[in-house]
Design a protein around this nucleic acid. Sequence first.
RNA 1: UCCUCCUUAGCUCAGUUGGUUAGAGCAUCUGACUGUUAAUCAGAGGGUCGUAGGUUCAAGUCCUACAGGAGGAGCCA
Length: 479
Amino acid sequence: MKRTEIKTLLESTDYGKTVNVKGWVRTKRESKNVAFIALNDGSTIKSVQIVVDKNPEIEKILDNIHTGAALSVNGTIIESPGKGQKVEIQAKEIEVLGPADPEEYPLQPKKHTLEFLREIAHLRFRTNTFGAITRVRHAMIFAIHKYFTENGFYNIHTPIITASDAEGAGEMFQVTTLDLNNIPKTDDGEVDFRKDFFGKPANLTVSGQLEAELAALALSKVYTFGPTFRAENSNTSRHLAEFWMIEPEVAFYDINDDMDLAEDMVKYLIRYALENCMDDLGFLSKRQQDEEKSKKADERSMELIEKLRFVIDQEFERITYTEAIDILRNSKPNKKKKFQYLIEGWGADLQSEHERYLVEKHFKKPVIITDYPKDIKAFYMKQNDDGRTVRAMDVLFPQIGEIIGGSQREDDYDKLYNRIKEMGIPEESMWWYLETRKFGSVIHSGFGLGFERMMLFVTGMGNIRDVIPFPRTPLNCEF
RNA sequence: UCCUCCUUAGCUCAGUUGGUUAGAGCAUCUGACUGUUAAUCAGAGGGUCGUAGGUUCAAGUCCUACAGGAGGAGCCA
């Protein structure tokens, strides 16, 4: 018999119909004459209840069924006389496909800490929380491609291995086939990269932006959605060494068009989640509220679904860096010296506490800050006429902080060339990037959206290691 | 990388000013129970207290180092 997915089954009203379901046991409850098994196959967060009328033969099978075991059940769909579910399966035949030794199986029908589940990442998919996160993550991946496709973008695959170390977006993972126990050296004692696979040093990408720009200057609207690697020794709940980033790049867009795109896209993704993942979001909302029970009322998060709706309904506040500095300088925490880093003058980078003040206290909604001092931003950003700021934009979200970083790109050959020189970037590694400003250069803009940070926001999870299946962080490369 | 905190049963935790054989809930096992919803009830088994040193008559408890984890900061997405 063909397997019926539990998601389909629970929506069915074909009472009396014989079906087959396969899945993993969440709990088993037994009394003298009847047993109940909650079976889940991951097609939905809901489990189906298998009702087993006991007899000596089936009891032998029941003895072998524990939390975690995989079952195949043939039975009939019946209307449930019990509370908590409309439909259930009256079992006729049960086969244990794969038993799970209860003495060893670590998951129990109870709350586990997220830290413990991280240590058993190979099994944590089988929990309600990670099942929900995984399904929402898929929905978000799909919605991203859908959004861009509907809006005339082309997806491009930018290289994962690159030889340009010019972007300066952080420490990189080196890629080499050299024997590390016997490194070839040049006459001056330096590593002889001519002997390496590519004949020069190579690294894992820290951003697909520079290559995406090349494509945008031909196809107008492109985006990348790929893995990104940062070898920074970051130990926070918001950083991963391997994460996924969405980077649209659009010709003829200025910084304002760029902001419009960012805001529209983020809202689209949230709307998609609300329209397609309510079962999972409802569970994640309850989970979050449960977790925050011990917190004081004013420290608790806004209810997840309410928060998502709230963000869709709000226009993101757009201010310049200079305006942000003014607000912060005159803010209560600054005057009362509550900030760890006091705002004194123009030019310093904003700290997390400042961003959080602006988003969570002052505006109480997402904020986009533009026109940062050029000295604290990357070389490729469009220089303003004032000579001291660039057309950068950061989208800041409550609790998460920077979720998007982007800019209008410098399209003037001379200005870009001079900036590369000023910042000591080896120009010979950037010849191809510079050439696009020599031939048919036009204004263009783009941004990077951290996918896992978006996932944090949509799921209400607190740690980025819990919204990616197998997190890579310093000293952690298990699974 | 810096600061702070944590590490006791399979899991989640309690363990008083250092003082006899280290406790609970859940899970597991045994039994009871006519439909349960993380079922319930009764009983049983389960621990070299993260590792290595040290102080002390005596260390789960105090000190040092190391390991692992968490929160915050920096870097950023």
